[in-house]
């Protein structure tokens, strides 16, 4: 694995995403759901909302890095608010 040049932060990053995927997979298998139409006008399931959250979070972090001077941790707070909004309304 040395060639992959792992670091602790990136390992935590991928570990979190993997854990999220496992949790959502189990949730979807255990509690099947009906897709709903939200604020974007498209049908979404929990998995879709997770994808939108993760992709949006990537762009929020990049925008924070490029435009805001404050510490990067605060971007994570914005992402969590964004995630809550996506899961509530999209």
């Amino acid at each position: 694995m040395a060639w992959m040049a792992w670091t602790v932060p990136t390992a935590i990053f991928f570990g979190t995403i993997a854990a999220l995927l496992v949790i959502f997979t189990l949730l979807a298998a255990r509690f099947p759901e009906t897709p709903r139409t939200g604020a974007l006008g498209i049908e979404t399931t929990r998995g879709d909302r997770l994808f939108i959250t993760l992709l949006g979070s990537a762009f929020i972090n990049l925008a924070w890095l490029g435009l805001v001077d404050a510490a990067q941790y605060w971007a994570l707070v914005v992402c969590l608010v964004f995630a809550a909004a996506v899961f509530r309304w999209v």
Binding site: W3, M4, A5, P9, T10, F14, L65, G66
Partner: peptide, 30 residues
């Protein structure tokens, strides 16, 4: 995943890496 690992480090070859944080992203955005 390897690309993500590379993106937060610097190397001069020989598979030796140094932590660079988000510097490369900042550099690329600018």
């Amino acid at each position: 995943m390897t690309v993500v690992n590379y993106s937060v480090q610097d190397t001069f070859g020989n598979n030796v890496f140094f932590w660079a944080g988000l510097d490369w992203f900042e550099q690329m955005l600018e």
